[in-house]
């Protein structure tokens, strides 16, 4: 099984390393033809405006929407969460727009406010998940069929809608592989 990792810009190397630690091959996706044969797709952290513009320029938005509509699991972290959201507060930037959520970009402030914290994520079990938030977004609204899987200070920071998964934090920057494993289980 191969998992695509969108490699327009951002932390794609770390996601590929997390997948490798789980014994799964991650392949870099920069062109439409590279989407062939992947069982799932990860959209990494990075700058959502940069990644979105490059997805438009190199014609990746529609092919990925089609694959997601056909049931292929897609997992977005940070910028990836922004790109998956239907509504981006105060922005008309390009996006996949698949999840019924409203996202606030840079929701916790600038870089000096970036933080790490232990989160309770019931779907991952009792042990808290050490989450790294970097100029992170949060979800202001989550509407069915999307559902919140974790919150921090009252705002959703992890959500799922069927075959779509999004986190505001960066599981690829820590050694804890439970979020990636949860995503891989969505594929089976």
């Amino acid at each position: 099984m191969k998992i695509g990792v969108l490699a327009m810009q951002g932390a794609f190397r770390e996601h590929i390393a997390s997948l490798a630690a789980l014994g799964v091959e991650g392949v870099e996706i920069r062109r439409e033809r590279q989407l062939e044969g992947i069982a799932g797709l990860i959209i990494p952290g990075g700058e959502s405006t940069t990644i979105g513009k490059l997805m438009v320029e190199f014609n990746l938005l529609e092919p990925i929407r089609e694959l997601a509509a056909a049931g292929m699991p897609v997992f977005g972290t940070c910028a990836g969460m922004v790109l998956l959201a239907r509504d981006i507060i105060g922005s008309d930037q390009p996006r996949l727009g698949l999840m019924h959520v409203s996202v606030q970009r840079n929701a916790y402030g600038r870089q000096v406010d970036s933080f790490e914290v232990d989160l309770e994520i019931p779907v991952l079990g009792e042990e808290p998940f050490h989450a790294v938030f970097i100029r992170a977004p949060y979800l202001e609204r989550v509407e069915p069929p999307a559902e919140s899987l974790a919150t921090f200070m009252g705002k959703t920071v992890m959500a799922r809608q069927g075959n779509l998964l999004a986190t505001a934090f960066h599981p690829e920057l820590t050694k804890d592989l439970r979020v990636h494993r949860y995503f891989l289980e969505m594929i089976k």
Binding site: Q9, G10, A11, F12, R13, G45, V112, D118, G154
Partner: peptide, 27 residues
């Protein structure tokens, strides 16, 4: 809600400093 969690949130760590640069990669 979250008051005690906020107290546990750590800012300006090596992970978040280095992490932002990781997010800039390929850009």
């Amino acid at each position: 809600m979250g008051g005690t969690k906020m107290a546990a949130a750590e800012k300006g760590t090596w992970t978040v400093k280095k992490g932002l640069a990781e997010m800039l990669k390929g850009g």
